[in-house]
Amino acid sequence: MNSEDVDLIERCKKGHAQAERELYRRYSPMMFGVAIRYSNSRHDAEDIAQDAWVKVFRYLKSFSENNSFEGWLRRIVVNTAITHYRRQKKHTHHLDIDEVYATPQDLEAFTESDYNKEEIEKAINALPNGYATVFKLYVIEGFKHKEIAETLEIDVNTSKSQLSRARKALQVTLLNMARIAKKKG
């Protein structure tokens, strides 16, 4: 964390309104990006991001400068999103989909150059909510299985198995998308 951020956080802790606005402007694009990733709509993402910011300013005094501020913010957004969907009972973390296995040929055929970000995003969003959440927390946010288990209130082994299944399901989805694209082409 750079000295400018440390100074900004200190001023926010002292209750400077201008510093709070500055902090918001600096980190709100990142926060909103994370909120959109874990929400079903842009409107939901706005609600999640606002709730997350309220928590940020409420608990900023407890933040220690020794930790990563961006990581702390990400965790707050993710937890807020999960709480939001848990409250609405729209989100389930226990999966009930058919087992999906990628064949060795599929994996060999899978090359990174075949897909852009939008396609990957689409494929992730096509996953069941539980798979998608575990995958995003582990691969994109960099959470450990223990942290995922605590956040989602599931067992560590469940987190591991869901991640493994999510990977395979995602690769199969991407290959299917590629095949459809080839046929159309």
């Binding site: 606005r21 918001y24 402007r25 709100s28 694009p29 990142m30 926060m31 909103f32 990006g33 959109i36 990733r37 706005e46 991001a49 606002q50």
Partner: peptide, 11 residues
Amino acid sequence: NETVQPPAGAE
């Protein structure tokens, strides 16, 4: 480092 600009009135 993915960022999305929030709506104008959000602040």
